[in-house]
Design a protein around this nucleic acid. Sequence first.
DNA 1: AATTATGTAGACCAGTCGGTCTAGAGTCCT
DNA 2: AGGACTCTAGACCGACTGGTCTACATAATT
Lengths: 202, 202
Amino acid sequence: MTRSGGQETRVRILRTAAELFRRQGYGATGLNQILSASGAPKGSLYFHFPGGKEQLAAEATALAGRDLGERMAAAVAAADGPRAAVTALGDVLADGLAASGYRDGCPVATVALEQAGEAGPIQDACAATYEGWLAGLREQLKSWGAPEDTAAELADLALSSVQGALLLAQVRRDVGVLHTIAGQVGAHIEARLATVTTGGAA
Amino acid sequence: MTRSGGQETRVRILRTAAELFRRQGYGATGLNQILSASGAPKGSLYFHFPGGKEQLAAEATALAGRDLGERMAAAVAAADGPRAAVTALGDVLADGLAASGYRDGCPVATVALEQAGEAGPIQDACAATYEGWLAGLREQLKSWGAPEDTAAELADLALSSVQGALLLAQVRRDVGVLHTIAGQVGAHIEARLATVTTGGAA
DNA sequence: AATTATGTAGACCAGTCGGTCTAGAGTCCT
DNA sequence: AGGACTCTAGACCGACTGGTCTACATAATT
């Protein structure tokens, strides 16, 4: 490739930044660390991200969120029902966590918590990422017969519980929780879905 | 009081630090900010916490965790069953979150995620805090008839789901999730406990 | 060939970081 | 009274922070 050398650098910076932000958070990660880890000079960073650290974090978080979101969506889509779906969700997260030596948890949570107080592009990117994940889950649940508002409740439940279990697994350095929680929540969702699709409330 | 003026300063620093770490994380919170917010000079900080920022964060996180833990334990103990207990748990967190303008989420999670990669006193304090909360939950569940390992599973489920919902609520700036998740998980736990105490599996 | 856009490269800046150090105020013991 | 101990007070340090700026290489356009 002759042209587009620049975009490669841009993406390399983005991926490096995403990894570091995910592992250390926004405040604890310095621009110089990102630069030396990605091999890019400072000039390139500010050429590609004139908005500085904030823009970089917002884009990096969004990118990492999209990546993981796709992997989760694929795992869920391949499942034959809610129970298998939630279990698969837990597996994706557990595998990534264990494979990274318990360093790679949720690519959004660390930054999201730090930024929860402030308003700004980073917070927006975090909120949008979660919303995207939830939208995917809701669609799946609806395809399995869940009505609109039930799907929303159950998607929230699935994401919340798996997200919390991921946090606990990371702190404990043991992925066990992720599997047991996913199993329980999957069973609960399947049971509730069965009720709704056969007999059904309002 | 004539003496013990020193311990007051120590605690004031600790509480200020806990609040800032909780809202901004470890890396993003500077010693100078803690100092100016608490009104203490730097000399006092290093007299009371010779281990520096790390020791301060470990103690502050432990203290804040103990405080919230006590409030959660009281709410759970006042409940007449698992369902009411988990709902009360969600209420405690939702109230604190909303009352602080969505700034005060979990006093442990923000720091825990930043430090998940490293080993050290901070990580230890976070792990110990969660473990303490879980121990309390397990005892309650056992008092309602749950066998040892079921209690452990259900305590993990309750904490994980509520913790995840808290994160989601904070990002969304809406405590709704906390209530719906707590309701669903409480119902699930109550149902499973009823099964175990009457008929029972292995 | 000259010009313009795209990007790389890193020196440089003021400000802040966590941490150390010395000076001294206040209190207690002897 | 005098010394010891506890704790406050903040000046000071080197290292590092995010951010700006100029110089330059390369490649497409004219």
